[in-house]
Design a protein around this nucleic acid. Structure first.
Lengths: 338, 338
DNA sequence: TTGTAAGCGTTATCAT
DNA sequence: ATGATAACGCTTACAA
């Protein structure tokens, strides 16, 4: 290369100083460094990667960053950690389409990404495709297959905390708005709903269908998806003495639309009704600031990358990571109205 | 390569069928396709890119995807368009740090990205670095240098619409919460504030310092950055007959925290006070759904990629793109209270 | 229509 | 301590 020519040495020696390994005389090092500076030389990663059969790049497949801030936080955490460890991140949104996911994966394979993170895969077969190519895969938040390790959240702990908190404050009529999953795996939803059930049970309360609704976790688009709003309207149209005094929504987006319904009916939070969300995405920005079960989103991303890296470095079966969720108390919960 | 061996042809012929160009006999094509299928062969992009001196990858430098959903939308639009045109996207968050931006750029250069998008660069010198390497650069939303083309938004049109809307409804005491820029370039902020000024002027109203505040556009973290809240509290503590009847906030995040102040004081929107935001990020999720000046965020990203592509293909000086902002009417504005 | 061979810019091995 | 050289897997003249 040019630098070698100018410094009057071979490319091998240049490589040695650049990678800082092997014996190099002070004189050669000096000349090479000068030549690097003079020419503004930058090593070509395409060549290096080809030679080393490593791309120092990971692929991150996410549902759609604009669908839920949850994905954004995970992606940011993963990118941050990857960058710190010398890796770049190719971010790909499958936008809920299986064909798109497939196409994205095929591209990742051709790029020879060193690993791929799925913040929610659609098709098991897409994960399998990667595995067949011996590309490490880490599943974040939801598992679609047992063939790849995962970084997940224990949704139950935080949700139980939330329920206990409501009950301790005296709430007895607690409504629930849960997520309708967009994928087959219902584990996340099951955990949250289960915590609701257990919370009720622990307090000697019984499940009532009219206090339970389900809806989409994703941002409302063109008016659809406002399920939190719809269910809340229904809850609030119950006779005064049957009306829930608190709502546990398993997603901040759902909670936000519940808040819209409450606001529209002229009711106040937490004076007239309390509400707890989940995720800690929109929570801080809502009025009042929402008490919510926080997920360690960025940490999820960072750990996912960490796990991918250990697999890249040869770890055949990393130990699955499970992080806790926890209740973050803000201002949307108070004692029930008398 | 393996496929060539199995199909009993040369690698050149394989390349020909894979790229679908040049003469290939039906027989050869058939055999090669069979061999591809049998081996599950995937072309190696590292090798192809090295050979072609093109990475089919763009770098996208953003401030921090978690700081403001605006960035996420731009990133999603860019990724979408890039993918459709056969490009992959390396997403990099500089997190507001100039050193990090620099480091990210250097990495992009080594990767030989075909172009880079900045959704808000920090340092002109970082852009210059890319330019020196003859890597096309597109600036999104804010320009820090005249040496690279940009895709920006006309902030004024939408903001003027917003002001006109308020005035038409009868508002005369209109407060303003503008952004404190995190970068030197104040153009975006100037346009929005200017529209406020012009709107006032057109209605024969005068500027009053006590109706104007400034704050950070970014999400509140650990309690800081709630400037919208702070200013709104101040506005609302004015004597009843001096109190603004409407607030124009130049960012949904600011508007959201204004809403928190209003809510806390037991006031209703739009009954007691009206509010208009900017961006259309949080707007849909707030209570009430926020009337806001929308920016075509995804379109910004798509156009930015399109411009980058035209530069990759040789266009020396693409024509700058300027997209309009527009008022989206939802439920946070009504006539002033009597 | 197909094959040969050079070359992309590194790194790694093996001599020296 | 350093240089030659092969190899990574593709594309593309050019030759056949």
């Amino acid at each position: 290369m040019e630098v070698a020519r100018i410094a009057g040495v071979s490319t091998a020696t240049v490589a040695r100083v650049l990678k800082n390994q092997g014996y190099v005389s002070a004189k050669a090092r000096e000349q090479i460094e000068a030549a690097v500076k003079a020419t503004g030389y930058r090593p070509n990663a395409m060549a290096r990667n080809l030679r080393q059969q490593r791309s120092y790049t990971i692929g991150h497949v996410v549902s759609a960053v604009t669908a839920n801030p949850f994905f954004v936080n995970v992606a940011h955490g993963a990118e941050d950690e990857a960058f710190a460890r010398g890796f770049s991140t190719l971010l790909f949104n499958h936008n809920g389409s299986a064909e798109r996911e497939r196409a994205g994966i095929e591209r990742f394979i051709e790029q020879r990404v060193d690993a791929v993170l799925f913040t929610t895969a659609i098709e098991v077969s897409d994960v399998a495709l990667l595995l067949k190519e011996r590309i490490p895969v880490v599943q974040v938040e939801r598992r679609v297959t047992a063939d790849a390790p995962s970084v997940t959240v224990d949704n139950e702990v935080g949700a139980l905390e939330a329920m206990a908190y409501l009950i301790e404050l005296g709430h007895r009529r607690i409504a629930f708005i849960g997520g309708t999953p967009m994928v087959d795996d219902r584990l996340v939803e099951a955990e949250r709903e289960n915590a609701y059930r257990i919370g009720l049970f622990n307090a000697g309360l019984s499940w009532r269908d009219e206090y339970v609704g389900h809806g989409a976790y994703y941002s409302p688009e063109d008016g659809t998806g406002r399920d939190g709003y719809r269910h809340t309207k229904a809850f609030l149209s119950l006779p005064r003495d049957k009306r829930p005094t608190a709502i546990f929504a398993t997603c901040d987006i759902l909670a936000a639309s519940a808040l819209q319904a409450i606001n529209e009916m002229g009711l106040r939070v937490p004076g007239d009704i309390s509400i707890i969300g989940f995720d800690d995405t929109l929570a801080q920005n809502l009025a009042p600031p929402l008490t919510t079960v926080a997920q360690p989103m960025q940490e999820l991303g960072r750990r996912a990358f960490g796990m991918a890296l250990s697999m890249i470095e040869g770890d055949r079966s990393p130990v699955p990571v499970r992080l806790p969720s926890r209740l973050v108390i803000r201002h949307s919960v108070g004692p029930p109205p008398r």
